[in-house]
């Protein structure tokens, strides 16, 4: 991990975007003993509106805890993707729900893009509300910033007790999906470009 990584996770209100942001921030600050800051989007909007969590993770004390440019964009809706992709750093990374977001030319600024049908996986698990945690598992795998154990602990803390089991399952599926995708990519890597 570089000294400072700036992450935005975005989508619609009701997709668990704020919770996912909190869990990433918590995992970095508490599970991993890194430094982190997290700012949920905060407005009069409730469900359905655009929603974003902003996270900064660093090895040292964070002077400026707000986003300047995005290193990692995690998007779970098309409007949110369109809004935030403009702030993605050249060479940044995009993670997206491939059923809900169609990347356009602007995604070329990214060095890597990773798609996962997070919402569909969550629905198959029986509750679409855990799509955010599927995405967190996926994020954990493909970025490697937070360890599997560290993020899992944060998920346990960050979700309501009665939903813990399904969330941990969702986390594992997202993580495995990422691991599989990485292996496929590695085998393809020499062929690219």
């Amino acid at each position: 991990m570089e000294n400072r990584v700036e992450i935005i996770i975005c989508g619609f209100g009701g997709q668990g975007i704020v919770r996912a942001g909190y869990i990433i921030g918590y995992a970095a600050a508490i599970s991993e003993d890194l430094e982190s800051s997290f700012v949920p989007s905060y407005g009069p909007e409730a469900r359905g509106g655009e929603c974003a969590s902003r996270i900064v993770i660093a090895r040292e004390k964070i002077d400026y805890p707000f986003i300047t440019t995005i290193d990692i964009l995690i998007t779970m809706s098309e409007p949110a993707y369109k809004k935030y992709v403009n702030y993605l750093k050249k060479g940044g990374i995009i993670l997206y729900d491939e059923d809900l977001v169609e990347l356009d030319d602007r995604a070329r600024i990214a060095s890597k893009t990773y798609g996962i049908p997070a919402t569909r996986i969550a629905e198959e698990l029986g509750n679409r509300i855990v799509a955010n945690i599927v995405m967190l598992g996926f994020f954990t795998s493909v970025t490697g910033i937070i360890t599997y154990e560290g993020m899992k602990r944060a998920v346990e803390v960050g979700v309501p007790a009665r939903f813990r089991e399904i969330n941990l399952k969702a986390f594992d599926i997202g993580y495995s999906y990422g691991e599989k995708l990485k292996k496929e990519r590695e085998s393809e890597e020499p062929l690219r470009n």
Binding site: A29, I30, S37, F38
Partner: peptide, 10 residues
């Protein structure tokens, strides 16, 4: 101020 009230840190 509002920024601090909604900022999460260690």
């Amino acid at each position: 101020d509002e920024r601090l009230s909604h900022l999460y840190e260690k």
